[in-house]
Amino acid sequence: MISDITLGQFFPGSSILHRLDPRTKLLLSLLYIIGVFLLNTPMAFILYTLITLSLILASRISMRVILKGIKPIVIVLIFTMIINILLTSGEGEPLFSFLIFAVYKEGIIRAFFMAYRVIMLIVGSSVLLTYTTSPIALTDGLESLLSPLKLIKVPVHLFAMMMTIALRFIPTLIEETETIMNAQKSRGANFTEGSIIKRARALIPILVPLFVSSFKRAEELAVAMECRCYRGDVGRTKMNKLKYRLRDILWLTVGALLFAGLILLSVKSAELSALGEAMRILFYKI
């Protein structure tokens, strides 16, 4: 059944990660994601694995849930790994070869790094954001972080409101789609047989009623919102004001330090000295 799909996958809880300000988590995930793409030395990998494991522990979300989250992409991952292994050529002798393919050490390393990055990306961002942050907190956090854009007339509040309403109505629309599908099935409609064109045509009896009722809903909701004195963000307050607490400051500091450490670990020493040289020249000039 379609209604089995759970969107957003938020697991309510009271772990330290759950209690962090959504803005803190958004900023940390930004650093985390950039970090994933920067790391390229074994030490950086070890550091990253440790960071991710501590995040999972801090979220108190069971390992089973985390692994279940990776499951859907395992096949894609294996496929891309194979492609990477087969199509990457290296400098030395190939480890072994068969048919037209030659497998090099570089290919294996590259495939492994790629898979590692993707897995870390999914695990990290879900633990930091979707698993531990309610959709509404996420929206509030985004609205607050992006609020400087209001100065250049970006309607940040409206985007946040649209996102909230979308999240509110997705389950309703899923339910409605199922009802309409059942109604049309009861009138002998068949959605699973026939050519692609025939199946696409069979969707009309679902899509038309769905659109009609969505517009009706939108209209009624607009009236109801107006009756509740909604006028954009003019003079609007919030019940749950976002507040940075001490723990947010600590987490952000630790995050920034780890990020700096990661850069140091990842950038090769030769590059580092080149960077230092460049700085020196720059300073001398000034």
């Binding site: 409605e176 009802t179 309409i180 059942n182 109604a183 049309q184 009861s186 009138r187 002998g188 409609a189 009309i204 009896p205 679902i206 038309v208 009623p209 009609v212 009722s213």
Partner: peptide, 23 residues
Amino acid sequence: GLVMQYPEYQLFDETVYSDIAFG
């Protein structure tokens, strides 16, 4: 034959005729 609750929300065709004729 099953008529669901609020069945008016399943109407979709251009005319009443073609909608009744769907089944």
